[in-house]
Nucleic acid binder design. Structure first.
Lengths: 330, 330
DNA sequence: GTGAAAGCGCTAACAT
DNA sequence: ATGTTAGCGCTTTCAC
């Protein structure tokens, strides 16, 4: 592989001049520039990125942590982040944490090993205490997920409102026995969404039945599991608020398999408004998250942070709107 | 940020010794090793990856090119590749080409700029002529997708058989008017699968109706589009072979919307056996691809290639089995 | 406008 | 078993 020196000698110029051409610096005459370009083409030269990164002390790469790559919500979010990053000449490194504390921590260390200039977290597994120390090494921005005590900027949705409008919708449909499913730990996003659920119930003088609370529910299969648990209950909920469209789809599919009618026997409400929501039957009532906008805003916040040298402690919270999409499952 | 020199002076040793500890080299006494470890911990030291990569002339990173990250087939494949890579201490760089020639080429250049040690392609947009030159810079392995003329190893499925068994199944169900949908260009994978379709038809003395061939069909929405086109035809197919479960799901969903019965009015067969196949109603007849195995095998081939210094020209083709999963949509 | 020279942080001969 | 030294490929002062 040719190096910058090879290009320099073929062009009859110094390495400095070649470097100026590579980086589009001014003050290089047209003739020399062409000389360099010709030499580069002739040799099939490409600059060594590791050398550039080492010298420049930056990589123009942002790590994006996602909890589960097979969840379409996150791949759509990643695509949005990626589009925006490309506009600013940044690369994205997709990091699949699999909801694992240790994997997350290892990815966060990418900032310490200088493999990335910043990190966007769309999920949080560790306590903020663990993570905070890493903010010394570069900007971290929270995207969608958040956590109490985090002293970094975040772009998020009003999850309390999301939990509220979903639950309130079910109540308006006449339900009083409403179950609730969520994924990981009840903190940040999940906590607020649950608070919205609780608030909506309380507003109508309803209280929470602990038997109808299901945690660790992430996937289609988890949804099936939940429905099976319910169908064995003596006192069953008549409606379910779920944390994702996939879970809702699993519940609906299993309900039909068992001969239950949706929404007659059990109403279901999803979250995200993924493509699957319109394909399943009955079509899914769900809460639409503005994925594209949240990705775009997050990357803009990151760019802004990258541009200022002094890592000031001030951080902002940007909140985007949610929307209930009423279909047939409720 | 502390460097290796800082660690060395704090430990009262040379940089070389610190480096030996970092890389788990033998011939370092326990006492010195502990001295170094303590110093590293005390300083919060992490080695600079760019410097290591530059010096070692490798990155222990493999680029994985996928055409569409939002297609669950590819995220599942990526997860499988990732699992295997982790076992060998390799990182994965996920590259979303979006079916774009230029983006693909830019990702292939990662090999020239030394950002990755090898590339796994799960889709191919450019002609092999464009790509071949890049194989000089490191190993390229084809995964699932393939293309005629490629002189690199590949792990794939017998797509001709896939096309054949799917079509034959429809014929056995009594269909003679069978349409066909596919995504990108008809080369490699798509070509063979189409050949299987053609062969199955020919075996029964049936010929292809050009009006029932749909190209550029990738997503749920594309599937809806296909069904709408069909419903306006005078002479309609009674069955459709599709290139993915998503497309099939779109067709089924739209058919039901239009009051058509599946499989009565139109039978549909998918490809992949994604989770959506069991959630949609009627459940989807589809061709299961052994995603996990194909990912695993591909990474093993890559590891093997990475370990041998001389890039020999010999290349192998590994073929894995496909399986028809008959459900209710056919 | 261009070149000389220093150095980013690390590893691997080689020497001891 | 440890240290010295050279250099991976590049960018950026500082000269001129």
């Amino acid at each position: 592989m040719p190096t910058i020196s090879d290009v320099a000698s073929l062009a009859g110029l110094s390495r400095a001049t070649v470097s100026r051409v590579i980086n589009n610096h001014p003050y290089v005459t047209k003739e020399k520039k062409e000389l360099v370009m010709d030499a580069m083409k002739q040799l099939g030269y490409f600059p060594n990125t590791s050398a550039q990164n080492l010298r420049k002390q930056k990589t123009d790469t942002i790590a994006v942590l996602v909890p589960r790559l097979t969840n379409p919500f996150f791949t759509h979010l990643v695509e949005s982040l990626e589009d925006r990053a490309a506009e600013y000449g940044l690369q994205i490194l997709i990091c699949n944490t699999k909801y694992d504390k240790k994997r997350e921590l290892e990815f966060l260390y990418l900032l310490k090993t200088k493999q990335v200039d910043g990190i966007i977290m769309t999920s949080i597994e560790n306590n903020w205490g663990q993570i905070e120390e890493i903010t010394m090494n570069g900007p971290i921005v929270l995207c969608n997920e958040y956590i109490t005590g985090a002293n970094v900027s975040s772009v998020r949705l009003n999850q309390l409102e999301g939990g509220y409008i979903g639950t309130h919708h079910l109540i308006q449909k006449g339900h009083t026995k409403i179950g609730y499913c969520w994924g990981g730990v009840l903190s940040g996003l999940s906590y607020d969404r649950f608070e919205g659920y609780r608030k909506a119930l309380a507003g109508q003088g309803l209280s929470i039945n602990e038997n109808w609370l299901f945690e660790g529910v992430f996937s289609i299969d988890d949804g099936r599991r939940v429905l099976n648990e319910i169908s064995e209950m003596y006192d069953r909920p008549t409606a379910l608020f779920t944390g994702s469209d996939e879970v809702a789809a699993g519940i609906i599919s299993e309900a039909k398999k068992k001969g239950l009618h949706v929404p007659g026997d059990i109403a279901v409400i999803g979250f995200d408004d993924q493509p699957i929501a319109e394909v399943i039957e009955p079509a899914l009532t769900t809460i639409r998250q503005p994925i594209s906008e949240i990705g775009k805003k997050t990357m803009e916040v990151m760019i802004e942070l990258l541009s200022k040298k002094n890592q000031s402690d001030e951080h902002q919270i940007y909140e985007l709107p949610l929307q209930l999409i009423a279909r047939e499952s409720s």
